[in-house]
Amino acid sequence: MTERSAGEQKRLLLIDDDPNLILLVKDYLEFRGYEVITAENGREALEVLEDDIPDLIICDVMMPEMDGYSLVEHVRKDPRTSWIPVLFLSAKGQSQDRVKGLNTGADVYMVKPFEPEELVAQVEASLKHGERLTKRKDRGPDDGPKIHVPFDVELTPTELKVVQYVARGMANREIAEGLSVSQRTIESHVSNMLGKTGLHNRTELARWAIENSMA
């Protein structure tokens, strides 16, 4: 498995079944200093991830063999890849499409066509956020004893997305706005996760998510 130090060139995995888009986006990102590896669909991307862990995944939603939703579910379930920021690209721009993408586990949802500069800005913001989470996780021993929960706890894709936002320090109201649902819905998800894990509050929930590479 390929690993790089923090100071090395950032590597991005770009997944799309449109060769013209692959070419254009790859060239633009490489011009901005990124290393870009590519795949034509989700199944091919999983093969890439067996040997190479990128710093960020940029993924089309509608693809043959395995679509973006299925790919992200695989990525989030694997501890090796669960931390990787995922940026969805999609021609579907309706609110329900964005909500589905975010609930599935994507961090950013961009609608085609998009401005290249906006894509670069989203990539840079996602990478910086990932670095902040990594630094916060590395400080775990200074924050108190490791959080312990039952080994067989399973979160739904929506709960996983919510706990990632909780780990970022976002309030229920902010999470609700980000996912386009009611605050009561988010409160229900948080309550369910506290019940599943046996944890006492959002702070412990956030620490558990970070220590277990879910955020």
Rank of each mutant, 00 (worst) to 15 (best):
A167N: 01
L102W: 07
P116A: 10
K26H: 03
P79W: 10
A91P: 04
H148C: 06
D60T: 06
H74E: 14
V181W: 06
L14A: 07
G93M: 05
T156V: 04
Q9I: 14
V149T: 15
P79R: 09
L127F: 08
S213C: 06
V61T: 05
R202Q: 13
P150K: 05
I186S: 03
I53F: 02
R173W: 00
D142N: 10
A121Y: 09
P19I: 06
E174H: 00
A209I: 03
E3L: 12
R32S: 10
L56F: 04
S90A: 06
A6I: 15
G195D: 12
Y165H: 15
T197S: 10
V149H: 03
T203Q: 13
D67M: 03
E30P: 04
V48W: 01
D16F: 07
R202M: 03
L23Q: 13
E118L: 15
V120Q: 11
N103H: 12
K137G: 02
D143H: 05
V108L: 09
H129M: 14
P113E: 07
E211L: 07
D18K: 08
Y165T: 00
Y109G: 07
R132W: 07
L155E: 02
I175P: 08
P85V: 05
R139Q: 14
M110R: 03
T134R: 14
L199G: 06
A106H: 09
S182A: 08
M63L: 08
K196G: 01
I147A: 00
H189A: 01
E115H: 15
D27G: 12
E73N: 12
L127S: 10
R98V: 13
K137F: 07
L127R: 05
K137A: 14
E3A: 13
S191Q: 14
Y165R: 08
G42W: 07
I147L: 02
V75H: 00
E50F: 05
P54Y: 09
F31Q: 12
K100I: 01
M193D: 01
A45K: 05
A39D: 03
K128E: 15
V61A: 07
P145G: 00
H189M: 00
V72C: 15
S5K: 10
E159S: 04
R132H: 07
I210V: 14
D142G: 00
N192K: 14
L13R: 09
Q94T: 15
E177P: 01
M170A: 12
P145C: 00
D17Q: 08
K137C: 04
L23I: 07
H129K: 15
Q183S: 09
E35S: 13
I57W: 01
M193H: 01
I84H: 04
L205S: 04
G68A: 09
E3K: 11
S5E: 12
G195H: 09
E65G: 02
E8R: 14
E204S: 10
D152F: 11
L49F: 06
S126F: 01
E211D: 11
P85L: 06
R139A: 15
T2E: 13
E30A: 02
S188H: 10
M63W: 09
K112R: 15
T134H: 11
G144R: 05
K77H: 15
N20K: 10
G169K: 05
N172K: 11
E3N: 11
V99N: 03
L133R: 14
D27A: 15
V108M: 06
E174I: 01
M62L: 14
A106M: 09
E211S: 02
N212Y: 01
E204Q: 15
R76I: 10
K10Q: 11
V75G: 05
E65F: 11
E44T: 11
